[in-house]
Each structure stands twice: as structure tokens, then as C-alpha cells.
């Protein structure tokens, strides 16, 4: 039964990792149309990197939480757009838009929210099982 308490750590870690992912998606989508004057200044899509927490994991242990080890910036080139009348345009008349792929971000968001829901479901089930275990022998 003590095992079941660890389950909250595991699912909780997954919830926070998925919410970091959702946050990254939100910020990518929000900045998808931000225009800048040079490729260096352009916003770059951010993607969190997940990894299992292997600290204290032995051959017999079963609980493996997840963590976000970092947020990577996409290395794709910013999109150059010819707009000579734009106040931010450079000498050649180009402005630079972020390398955010909106379709990819939408798919990412759906995947993150499904995973989040899955883990909430796991936590709910675990809670019910724990409550029933606490009532063992009382009926």
C-alpha cells in the first residue's frame, strides 16, 4: 500500500512536465507572428526535453517519475519575409518571423493535453484505491 503513495509523485511529476510543455506551446503560439529586424532577434520556438528521473532507481524499484531537463530552442532558420515598407525592415527590405510551425504546435498541444488527462485519471483511480484500502476490514 505504501507503494501507492509513490504513485502520486510519479503522476504529479508527469503533470508538471506536461504543463511545462503546454506552457512552451502557448508561448510559441503567442509569439508566432512577432516580427523582428534581424534573424538573431527573431523569436525561436521553444521545446522542453523530457527525461526519466533515474535517481535511486534500482533493479527492484518500479516508480519512475519524469522531469524536464531543459528547454531547447529550435535551430530552424527564421522565416524571412520581403516587406520593404515595414518599419523594422533591414537594408534589403526583409523582416524576420519566428521559426514556429503552428500546425506542429497544435499537434503538440493536443498530445500534451491528452497525456495530462491520462495522468489525472491515474491519480484519481489511485486515490480511490487508497481510500478503499484505508477502509479495509471496517465493513
Amino acid at each position: 500500500m505504501s507503494n501507492l503513495f509513490k504513485l502520486f509523485d510519479v503522476s504529479g511529476s508527469a503533470l508538471s512536465a506536461q504543463s511545462v510543455r503546454l506552457n512552451a506551446v502557448a508561448s510559441n503560439m503567442a509569439n508566432a507572428q512577432v516580427v523582428s529586424g534581424s534573424p538573431e532577434q527573431a523569436y525561436r520556438a521553444k521545446h522542453p526535453v523530457f527525461a526519466s528521473v533515474l535517481q535511486g532507481v534500482g533493479p527492484h524499484s518500479t516508480a519512475t517519475p519524469v522531469q524536464v531537463v531543459g528547454v531547447m530552442e529550435s535551430q530552424a532558420e527564421p522565416r524571412a519575409e520581403y516587406a520593404p515598407n515595414h518599419p523594422l525592415a533591414d537594408e534589403q527590405g526583409y523582416v524576420y518571423k519566428p521559426n514556429v510551425n503552428v500546425v506542429e504546435e497544435m499537434a503538440n498541444m493536443i498530445s500534451a493535453s491528452r497525456s495530462y488527462q491520462n495522468n489525472v485519471e491515474v491519480m484519481n483511480t489511485t486515490k480511490q484505491l487508497l481510500l478503499r484500502t484505508l477502509q479495509l476490514g471496517q465493513q
Binding site: N3, S13, A14, F50, A51, S52, P65, N119
Partner: peptide, 21 residues
């Protein structure tokens, strides 16, 4: 019951790491 709770833990870990490379 012991084995079941252990298996629950494993399956929950799998679900938690569904997106971990």
C-alpha cells in the same frame, strides 16, 4: 494486493513517461 499495487506503480510510471525519449 502487494503485487497488484506494485504493478499499478509500474503502469503509472509507464503512463507518466509516455512522452519521454
Amino acid at each position: 494486493l502487494q503485487v497488484r499495487s506494485r504493478r499499478l506503480e509500474l503502469l503509472a510510471s509507464n503512463l507518466a513517461n509516455a512522452d519521454t525519449p
